[in-house]
């Protein structure tokens, strides 16, 4: 298990280095950054001054290593638009995104796993059909529309929850439901299929032949094996919830990191874009690493890999 963990850590470091190079090179993909920063009416001297100020006159690899060295210390430079350190912008916005992501993930798991288990225990029953309906709805509803409908119902017709802002826990209820519901169908279907498969396996029969109680057979012997693919998916989905919540954050006017990414892209605020992108990639890398560890704990066969 120690060797496995060490291997995973090494892999995670290599992946983040690759990603950081890609994120850095994005800067040059849209043309010369100094020209873009200087604006349309700038002359040659202005551009040269900007190049010197931002270090664009140095070789690219020097720029990259300087930037990377800063990044690992949390130093991303100043935002071109806000004129503030990027790290301050991010630390201000991140708690909102984190809270939303964690709540949405918890909501999705708490809804989908019990439903998936019930659907697998009683296949083709009423509860299975109801769960399927919920899944189809979840996949079919565009999240912005679902968000607007929730606002109409719970903030306008029955004004019990706030429609926008991020000041109290009540502000997070509706965004959590929208973001979490989006991930629910996949979790639920995966739990159901996995569990159905495992419940007809030989080792579950062995467990029953031992005289174990049905609950023990289900939770100890079946669910642990059925949940393995759900863990992998959850890691990816959680990354998505942390980074892809731009629409949700916009609809509910939650000023999170996703919203910040959107703002800085539209304003060509490249230090912020780079920082947010790198941060989001790190989320994915860390989550994948944690999912690998969790999977290894659940499934001893992959610990040797």
């Amino acid at each position: 298990m120690l060797i496995y963990t060490a291997k995973r850590i090494l892999l995670a470091i290599l992946v983040s280095l690759t990603v950081s190079a890609l994120v850095f090179s994005l800067l040059y993909l849209s043309g010369d950054p100094a020209t873009a920063l200087a604006g349309e009416r700038a002359n040659e001297a202005d551009i040269l001054a900007i190049k010197a100020a931002y270090g664009f006159d140095q070789p690219v690899y020097v720029q990259y290593f300087k930037w990377l060295a800063g990044a690992v210390q949390g130093e991303f430079g100043n935002s071109v638009y806000f004129r503030l350190p990027v790290i301050d912008l991010i630390t201000e916005r991140l708690p909102v995104t984190m809270t939303l992501g964690v709540c949405a993930m918890a909501f999705a798991l708490l809804l989908s796993i019990p439903l998936g288990v019930l659907a697998a225990m009683y296949p083709n029953s009423l509860i299975d059909r109801a769960a399927l309906l919920l899944a189809v709805l979840g996949q079919a509803l565009p999240s912005f529309w679902f968000a607007l409908m929730l606002i109409v119902v719970f903030a306008y017709w029955f004004p019990i929850l706030p429609a926008s802002g991020s000041d109290s826990w009540e502000h997070f209820v509706l965004p959590t439901i929208v973001l979490g519901y989006y991930a629910t169908p996949a979790f639920m279907r995966l739990t159901r299929t996995g569990l159905l498969d495992v419940l007809s396996s030989d080792y579950v029969r062995t467990a029953r032949a031992k005289g174990l109680r049905p609950a023990k057979v289900l939770f100890k012997h079946a669910l642990r094996n059925a949940i393995i693919p759900v863990v992998s998916l959850a890691a990816v989905q959680f990354g998505f919830m942390l980074t892809g919540s731009i629409i949700i954050e916009t609809v509910f006017a939650l000023h999170g990191a996703g919203f910040l990414a959107w703002e800085s892209i539209s304003r060509s605020d490249f230090p912020t874009v780079q920082a947010v992108l790198l941060l989001f990639s790190w989320f994915y890398i860390i989550l994948t690493f944690l999912a690998d560890l969790l999977n290894a704990w659940l499934n001893p066969r992959i610990r040797v890999a």
Partner: peptide, 21 residues
């Protein structure tokens, strides 16, 4: 009684044990 006073051995030893424990 199962696993207690009456017990059973199955045909497929490769899949009859739970891989997770």
């Amino acid at each position: 009684m199962r696993g207690n006073s009456m017990a059973m051995i199955f045909q497929e030893p490769m899949t009859s044990l739970n891989p997770a424990y």
